[in-house]
Each structure stands twice: as structure tokens, then as C-alpha cells.
Design a protein around this nucleic acid. Structure first.
Lengths: 222, 222
DNA sequence: GTCTATAATCAGATAGAC
DNA sequence: GTCTATCTGATTATAGAC
């Protein structure tokens, strides 16, 4: 229960949102825009419409604020992992999983982009981000195995391992690539689609005629 | 001539290397280890065996030090691009190109890993890193076109564009992935080979029987 | 819970002697 | 070219009134 609310009832002065939640939201926004090292507690308090001293009432350190945001990231990943569809060999299930993962990566992209800064003040994050990666990778590998067993992809064991690593790299860093190298500041639907298309294209050459038929049918329906 | 030596002869007190070069080497090392924001000028001077004040004789600002390192990165890329082999459709030429690019990316990986910190103090770097990306991408695309024309890969125009982007993402971020997510601190030959294998595996499914024969023959020779 | 001070620290940078 | 000494500014964090 790291992310528990304070015992007393939080005030909901503005927009019906508690000050604490507003601080978290504003911090995430600023961290994403400029990176956590280039955002001061004064700026966060300012953007949240409160005084700097007051911020320290909610978060005793700046690092605590970062950790709470990381907790939320973790919670969203948990929710994704607990959703029931992951045992399916249905390509549509994979597509949904991928889209939701991409939305999470987009929202919390500063965690990957500015990871080194975060490590310096909170070394535990290395372990935690690796744990998340490992937990996410397992169902993806399972799913790829199911796709192969169902005759949707034709691929050797060795190729499958390499593909998995590439899926991992592209699905994590597509957003850093767009941000840093292409200067994309705000996620438009087109960018999300671009990322999904990139990861999908990793699979394309391995698809069997069966899978291609199915995909064509899907495309015709939509 | 951003990277020009001072007019006067530099002393080569230790190891036969000028203080200026020593500072650059030490700064690169520390930036790589901890990220530029977590390294102070005092620490750089210390590691170089000189006084902090003296550092400022060589580099008026910390940012100037970063920019000189970036200049060297740029120069290495230039050297790679000016090497004569890039018009060839010979896969071996591509393999060499890839390996040299990977060594550069490894050496200067902090530029990609800590890009946001750098941007904050030197916004011009966004333009410069994008320019480098664009210049590198052109010959790779040309080369892929040649490979297709020579009947080594079978791929549609659309697939080729997606492949190019994935090649770009993997060949830039494999090193950040190893560093941040796998905790790899020092480049061993095995890691370089791993990165090369990952990028190669992006091409594998598109290779024609002709290319596979050629590769098998190569493998037999080596 | 929120504010007004203000403390404590530390990094980047400069001046001037040697 | 190199050092010692110092300044300046910014930032995290605290104390205590309201």
C-alpha cells in the first residue's frame, strides 16, 4: 500500500481532485516534458497551484514523489497482466494487449527515457523495472508459442528468441525514439498506430498463409 | 574546427597525453558510468588529476565539455560515412558497416541514454543528433535497395520502410537496453555480437535462397 | 492543510597568485 | 598551465505561524 491516501480526508478544492492527486498528475506531466532532473519542487508546487512548503507536507522528499508515480506505473502493468485474455492464441487478443501496453509506455515514458537520473536517487528502480520487464515478457513468449502451435507463425526456436528480444526493444523504445529523435511531443493516435505497426511488422514475415487469410478477413470486416 | 587544440603546445605530463585530452577521456568515462548530470566538474578534474579551477582553463563551461565530446562522436560517424564501401550490395560490406556503427554507439551511448539531460543545457543537440541519424539512414536505405536489386532479399516497399525503422530503433537502443534493463556495464565482445545478431535477425526472414546459400558458404569459410 | 520564512547544501563558475 | 580561494545562484528541505 505505498500509494495509500493520508488517513484524513483530502480536500478537493479544485476540479474535485485532491491536492495529493493533483501533485502527482502535475509532476508526471512536468517530468515527461522536461525530465525529472530539470523540474524543481518549486515548479511542481507552482503548477499545482500550491506553495512549495505545502508540497513537502504530502511528499517528504522529491524522490518519494517519483516512487509514487512508479507505483502507479507498476499498478497499471499489474492490471494489464491480470486481464484474462493472455492465454489465448487469438491474434486479436495480442493486438489488444499490445495497444494497452503501448498506452502505458507512452504515459510513463519518462521512466525509460530518463532512467539514469532516476537510478541515481532511487537505485531500487533498476530491480523494479527489470522485474516488470521479466513479468511482461513471460506472457508474450507464451502467446508467441501458442501462435506457433496454432499454425499462425512459422518460426524456429532460435528465431523466436531473437524475435522476442526485438519485440521487447521496439515496444519499449519506439516511444523514446519518437520523442528524442523525431521530436514528437504529444501522443496522437497516429503515433500509437505507428508503434503498433512497427511491432506488428516484426511478425509479418513469419505469418503463415492461414494467419494472412485471417488478417485479410479481419481487415475486410473493419 | 570546434575540437581544435589550444594555440600553445599542450603539456603531456602524464601518460604522454595532453591535459585537455585527458579531461575529455575522463569526462566521457564518467558520463557513461553515471550520466552527465550526476558527474560534477570537481569529480572530472579530480579523476583527471588536476584542480577544478584548472578545468575551467580548458573548458569555460561544463556544456563546452559535452559539446566537444559530441564533436568527436560526429567525427567518428563522418569517418564511417566517408569510408568507401557503402555503395556495395555485398552483405559483407554491410556487416562491417554495422559493426563499426555499433562500436561507436557503444562508446558514446550516454548521448542516447541521457539525451534529455543534455538537451536541457544544449538544445542544439536535438538538431545535430537528428542530422546524424538522417545521414546514416540514407546509405542504409540505399544498401537495402541494392540488396533487393541483387536478389538477396525479397521485400515489398512498405515492408522495407518498416524494416528500416526497426533496424534504426534496434541498432540505436540495443545498447541502452543492455545497459538499463540488463545491467550490462562493460562491453564484452559477446554483447557486440548480440546486438549485431539482433539486427541481422530483422533481415533473416526476408533473405532469398540465393542469399542463404551465400551466407552458408561464408559460414563454412570462417 | 496551507502558508511564509529560512536553513543547508552544493554545483558551476571566476579572480588572481604562483 | 596550474593552483587556492571565493562567489553566486539554484534547489532541496525544515520550522513554525496561521
Amino acid at each position: 500500500m505505498r500509494d495509500a491516501e493520508p488517513a484524513s480526508k483530502a480536500k478537493r478544492a479544485r476540479h474535485g481532485v485532491s491536492t495529493r492527486d493533483r501533485l502527482i498528475a502535475v509532476a508526471l506531466k512536468l517530468f515527461t516534458e522536461r525530465g525529472p532532473d530539470r523540474v524543481t519542487t518549486a515548479q511542481i508546487a507552482d503548477a499545482a497551484g500550491i506553495n512549495e512548503g505545502n508540497l513537502y507536507y504530502y511528499f517528504k522528499t522529491k524522490q518519494a514523489l517519483v516512487l509514487v508515480i512508479f507505483d502507479r506505473f507498476e499498478a497499471e502493468v499489474d492490471r494489464l497482466l491480470e486481464s484474462p485474455r493472455r492465454d489465448s492464441a487469438d491474434p486479436a487478443a495480442y493486438a489488444t494487449f499490445l495497444r494497452e501496453w503501448f498506452e502505458i509506455v507512452w504515459s510513463y515514458r519518462f521512466l525509460y527515457r530518463d532512467f539514469m537520473s532516476l537510478l541515481a536517487t532511487a537505485p531500487e528502480l533498476r530491480r523494479r523495472i527489470r522485474a516488470i520487464s521479466a513479468r511482461l515478457r513471460a506472457p508474450v513468449k507464451t502467446l508467441m508459442g501458442h501462435m506457433r502451435a496454432a499454425g499462425l507463425i512459422a518460426i524456429s526456436d532460435e528465431e523466436l528468441d531473437a524475435l522476442l528480444a526485438n519485440v521487447w526493444i521496439v515496444s519499449t523504445y519506439w516511444v523514446v525514439y519518437l520523442d528524442v529523435q523525431e521530436g514528437v511531443r504529444a501522443l496522437k493516435k497516429a503515433h500509437l498506430e505507428w508503434g503498433i505497426k512497427q511491432v506488428s511488422s516484426l511478425f509479418t514475415p513469419y505469418l503463415t498463409p492461414l494467419a494472412r487469410e485471417w488478417l485479410d478477413a479481419q481487415a475486410a470486416t473493419t
